[in-house]
């Protein structure tokens, strides 16, 4: 198997996997970074959202061979102490129910807010529309994104 060198959370990691292996499974199975979740495998639910050079991407549909030198950030690397404004807002609003989708929600929100620090309610709904929360904590998610925006 080829060995890929990928940059995850600021560290260079060597992974010995097939070229078509989605980044999601490299993170979860190979690198033990299980905060990034598997939901659908076809980029429809957002549970696997990570950052690629600061952009929100669906890691379930991103083969490891396409990553190259791009910088990957996962929920584990979003902040050193779990205090990124988005994480703090999620804590303040006590957003999760089951919690499974929330890493993807937060990664999506963090990438969005880094581009739009003063979003309208409609901007927030549009930005978060790709991430499903089956427990339907959408009210709290929207409120937390708003709070995070004011603290970014």
């Amino acid at each position: 198997m080829p060995v890929y060198s990928i940059n995850v959370n600021g560290k260079s990691r060597q992974v010995d996997v097939d070229a078509d292996t989605p980044l999601l499974w490299v993170l979860r199975d190979t690198l033990d970074l299980v905060g990034t979740k598997f939901g659908c495998g076809i980029a429809q639910c957002g549970a696997c959202t990570v950052h690629l050079n600061g952009n929100a991407v669906r890691s379930c549909s991103l083969p490891v061979s396409t990553i190259g030198d791009n910088e990957i950030t996962t929920i584990e690397g979003l902040s050193e102490n779990g205090d990124h404004p988005v994480q703090s807002a999620w804590r303040e609003h006590d957003v999760p129910q089951c919690g499974y989708c929330q890493a993807g929600q937060m990664m999506n929100a963090a990438a969005f807010l880094s581009r739009n620090s003063n979003p309208s309610d409609e901007d927030i709904e549009n930005a978060m529309h790709g991430n499903i929360c089956r427990c339907a904590t959408y009210n709290k998610i929207k409120a937390a994104v708003k709070t995070a925006a004011t603290n970014m």
Binding site: V34, G35, K37, G82, Q87, W90, R91, P96, G99
Partner: peptide, 18 residues
């Protein structure tokens, strides 16, 4: 607050799949 809140927010292994 949810007792697992910090774990959820920082991506700790809490779930069966993890």
């Amino acid at each position: 607050k949810n007792v697992d809140l910090d774990g959820i927010i920082t991506g700790e292994p809490l779930f069966g799949l993890d």
